[in-house]
Amino acid sequence: MKKYLIAGFGGQGVLFIGRILAQAGLEEDKQVTWLPSYGPEMRGGTANCSVIIAAKKIGSPIVSRPDIAVMMNTPSYKKFLPHVVPGGFMFLNSSIIPDTAALPSRADIRILRVPINEMAHEMGKDSVANIIMLGVIQAVTPVVSDAAIQAALAGISTKNHELKELNEKALNIGYQYGVSLG
């Protein structure tokens, strides 16, 4: 069983990353849950979602201690850093979260910094930053097969052919970046 917590500002595609992961789990006939933050807290501009992918029936769908955390902004990073299980992973949007010594950190989890905004900008499409992050996650911490992620992304995302290709490209760029991180 793997538990994800993905958090950031509204508009960063946080819920969408979770959707793709959950859908990919479903593609492999795994048990999945996807749980968003909802209500006025979203109107306030922050968003997060919990995803669980498991081989057997999922009890609580609430993720308090993620195995894999994806933090797209500094407040989320600060809030959820202590919650990641020891030995877990934390992916950071380093385009937004500064690498300063002033920020707390942890030695017992692996923290990976990915400048997704710059990478997306280089691609000529700022809005695919979250897909790039998804590629990195898949390269470093694969829970489902690459094919399942690709199928989920193709199935859920836009019907616009051009955007579809861009998404695939962004996923691949992220994936390669993840591989390079080792």
């Binding site: 959707r19 048990q31 999945v32 849950t33 996807w34 749980l35």
Partner: peptide
Amino acid sequence: EGISGQMMEP
């Protein structure tokens, strides 16, 4: 619960 209404599952 609201949380269950918002939750996605297969």
